[in-house]
Design a protein around this nucleic acid. Sequence first.
DNA 1: CATCCAAGCGGACTGTTGGTCCGCTTAATT
DNA 2: AATTAAGCGGACCAACAGTCCGCTTGGATG
Lengths: 189, 189
Amino acid sequence: MGDRPERADATRNRLAILRATEELLERHGADHVSLDQVAAAAGVGKGTVFRRFGSRTGLFQELLADRAVLIGEAITTGPPPLGPGVPPKERLIAFLDALADLALRNLALISAHDRACADDKYQDPTYLRWHSHVTGLIAEARPDLDAEFVAHTLLACFDGDLVRHVTANGGRTRLTHSIHDLTLALLGQ
Amino acid sequence: MGDRPERADATRNRLAILRATEELLERHGADHVSLDQVAAAAGVGKGTVFRRFGSRTGLFQELLADRAVLIGEAITTGPPPLGPGVPPKERLIAFLDALADLALRNLALISAHDRACADDKYQDPTYLRWHSHVTGLIAEARPDLDAEFVAHTLLACFDGDLVRHVTANGGRTRLTHSIHDLTLALLGQ
DNA sequence: CATCCAAGCGGACTGTTGGTCCGCTTAATT
DNA sequence: AATTAAGCGGACCAACAGTCCGCTTGGATG
């Protein structure tokens, strides 16, 4: 394919946009971040943002994908318990712990991503990867359940608003404990 | 309090707005329904919509509250298994079945409501009522779990997009069966 | 029935935002 | 140095939530 390498200025701008978006998300809430602001903060024109990311949704998807790279590698080729080689129950718990960690460290991004992908949540590559991983583990541990459905339900635990709401009173330990208990109850024992 | 009764024209317009909203939701998808359209379809001015419902969110909340009245009565004062008088497990399953029914009959409304309440999901009176009901039943059946958290998770099964996605391949029976199985697994057999 | 007035009305108007367009600039290649 | 397509930026557009205010009217009063 004629996939020319990215031009130097394009690379510079792409990184500036991603960094600016993160910073704005951090500073203002998950809402209240318009693409005009992003463009201004990144020191580029609005057109540049849209040419590269296609849409608001695309921007947040790519940003989340970026933050999810490490987990993605860990579950496919990393060592146990995230990587293969342990019973599904342990592996699922390890994965959910990792996700909780990611969610807590990127709360604003998660919320913004949720809202931006409201329509086509089931098209987002990152979500799909997570979903298929969880589906596989559930199918293995509890073949009697509708693994796909349960996987969606489990991933719903990381909804930005829910995470914020739960940690707001109970802190991070409440979140991880609750998910832990929920998962064990689900998988039986 | 000086709560004058609603003026006749106000009543007429309120009903027209609610009916128009339902019809537009039905016809077009959950998105693609602007309040300008609603006002036009109802044959009233835009100001009238906002005076009565306050905001887009308010409109969808009130519409959902309307559709949820019957279930609300059934769980507080109705006969078992929705009303009191049976073990929590049965009562929870009956409630979730009723919700699934409601969701399936009002899919577009549910989606629109979800999106409109994205910010303050935990302020919506209808959601709160459902949540506290489910929380109570779970606390009774499984005192070892974080009932509030699990209740949020269970109610996430009725996310408009998830319902659409699941019923799209598997139909209504897949939805109810999956929820059924999930609940039983959670409550321990 | 005539009068009155506050509740109600409607639609023009505003501010914000996601997304588009197109003439100009520049990185990279020759 | 010349060439050219990839990239740029910001003016522009359309859609939408929400506000405002001068006009209308339901219904209460005498």
